[in-house]
Write a protein that binds this DNA or RNA. Sequence first.
DNA 1: GTCGTTGCAAAGCGTTTGCAACTAT
DNA 2: ATAGTTGCAAACGCTTTGCAACGAC
Lengths: 148, 148
Amino acid sequence: MQCSKIDPVQDTATIVSDLRARGHRLTPQREAIIGAVLKAKGHIVPVELARAVQRRMSAVNPSTVYRTLSLLEDLGVLKHSHLEHGPEYYRATSQDHVHLRCARCGTDDDLSLDEAERLKQLIYAHAGFLPDLSHFAISGLCAACQAR
Amino acid sequence: MQCSKIDPVQDTATIVSDLRARGHRLTPQREAIIGAVLKAKGHIVPVELARAVQRRMSAVNPSTVYRTLSLLEDLGVLKHSHLEHGPEYYRATSQDHVHLRCARCGTDDDLSLDEAERLKQLIYAHAGFLPDLSHFAISGLCAACQAR
DNA sequence: GTCGTTGCAAAGCGTTTGCAACTAT
DNA sequence: ATAGTTGCAAACGCTTTGCAACGAC
């Protein structure tokens, strides 16, 4: 229930030395990609990053971008997210609800309408942002799987 | 621990008559696909549904499944979700945070750590489900865009 | 010079589309 | 008989992979 993770500032220098410590090399392409990654706020969508990098550096092959992203994941600079990969369609009749899916056992559950409403309020209280909860999935661990 | 879902029952019969009302036809393939859609709880991932249908009915072409899903969307049986399409990677150093993205203007915002923590608590209170908020994006409308 | 890295091209996967054959009505 | 539907094959966009050339060290 804690979320006090210290956020070590990750600068190019640190990443590059981690890279070298593992016997990897710094190439102009990697420099550009790392730069783009650090500049990105929030999430990183591979295709978009690939395009962004290519805009700055004429000819970086997409495969290089993909390979570098996965290298950065190995180095611990990036993490892969399965969270938002998912559903494409949902039943039109279903009311706003928040779907909970256990990442380990795959069990699905929903917040009650009341709980969903409170969640909505909580978010709305932040600068009046109105979330679209018409369909919403949150990944995590169910009680049973946490115990294991 | 179940929540009260008041899911207006959408049965095959209703869907089929809507279908016909629009001048569409009922084929064995569509029957199978509709059956699978109704059986699905929660979200529907096209590829998975396609495979599920093919398991039951030897030779349904994937394109038929895709076309039927989009037809069902036209009929209002399904809705398309853009919500969870997105990010693949996120910075490993970033703290748990909840990302808010305005669907209209694209502005990004984050809940404060405190707000994120309360959101986590709220979800945790439901059957002890521990959400993974390490990276999380919620779509909706920012205050400015609601006004427009 | 070594060996990690790159670009290229080909292949993979999910999805879309054109078209001729089929079939529910 | 008349459209709406289907399967097939081709095409598409994103991603991965094998391989030879390249270049950081």
